[in-house]
């Protein structure tokens, strides 16, 4: 008599599925902890006192919520000025990139003229030249001009984004020529066409570009570190990183308080504008 295995019933499948589902959920909860935990630890540390940090460094919850570390950060650093420097720099870069990409993208997408192809190729070639390649020569070029330690050195090298120009050109390719011809017939000048008619039409692209560039430059450490040597136009990330270098080693509550000051605005912006940021990132990736 052959032994016939009982075919698995519906319940068997449901059982198996729910165990594996539970395992996946458990794994995902661990993943969430691995990513959120460090932020919580940062915040918890920033509310502790030095004494507590030395005595029980692994105890997660501070015994008293102390603001001492924040007070010290604000006392030792002109936090507001650095924040203002950083915001002005990031906003200027974002605005200039959008303002300059529009006319350039328009010429490349819509107008016939001699040299269009080489101009386009030049823009594309510049995609291959990141700041990590240009910082040494740019530093040498700006030094003799007295431009190191100025807002100019922080903003102007990024006023044009090759990738942004490319994105705007792509977006403008989809705009029908008739629209531009009609505007011309109505007597609109080219500047009006670019900024008043085409600008609003490609607004999602411009917004994504601005947002990406703003967040990137607000957090940028590399370029401001290279181009500033004193605290004249120092930006927040550079200043916060210096907290640790000046620190005596155990004053982690102060470093973490500075880190919260640096991170919180970005995390708030992230929560508020997550969809837009996601779109900006995937647009960059998939356009």
């Amino acid at each position: 008599m052959a032994l016939v295995a009982k075919p698995p019933t519906r319940e068997d499948y449901a059982m198996r599925r729910s165990t594996s589902d539970r395992l996946v959920t458990l794994g995902l909860a661990l993943v969430a902890l691995l990513w959120v935990g460090p932020y919580l630890w940062m915040v918890a540390t920033s509310f502790k006192s030095l004494d507590e940090l030395v005595r029980a460094p692994a105890w997660p919850i501070p015994s008293h919520f102390r603001l001492d570390a924040y007070r010290e950060v604000f006392a030792t650093l002109p936090v507001w000025r650095y924040t203002l420097n950083t915001l002005v720099m990031a906003a200027l870069i974002g605005a200039l990139q959008a303002a300059l990409a529009l006319p350039a993208g328009y010429a490349l997408a819509k107008l016939t003229f001699r040299g269009r192809r080489p101009a386009f190729l030049m823009v594309m070639a510049c995609l291959m030249i990141p700041p990590q390649v240009t910082f040494v020569p740019v530093f040498m070029m700006l030094g003799p001009l007295g431009l190191v330690n100025t807002m100019t050195a922080l903003v102007v090298p990024f006023a044009v984004s090759a990738f942004g120009t490319f994105l705007v050109r792509q977006a403008l390719l989809a705009v029908p020529n008739e629209l531009i011809e009609a505007a011309r017939l109505d007597g609109a000048g080219e500047l009006t066409i670019i900024y008043r008619i085409l600008g609003p039409l490609v607004r999602p692209t411009l917004a994504a570009m601005f947002l990406f560039s703003f967040v990137y430059h607000y957090s940028d450490y590399f370029w401001p570190l290279m181009m500033t040597t004193d605290d004249h136009v120092r930006t927040l990330p550079v200043a916060i990183a210096l907290l640790r270098e000046q620190g005596t080693g155990v004053r982690w509550h102060i470093v973490m308080a500075g880190n919260v000051v640096l991170t919180l605005p970005v995390l708030v912006l992230f929560v508020l504008a997550q969809r837009r940021i996601l779109r900006a990132v995937t647009a960059r990736g998939l356009s």
Partner: peptide
């Protein structure tokens, strides 16, 4: 989205 400085300092402490 968070800056490299923030991530670096955070893990330096961890």
């Amino acid at each position: 989205v968070v800056s490299w400085v923030a991530v670096g300092l955070l893990w330096l402490w961890l």
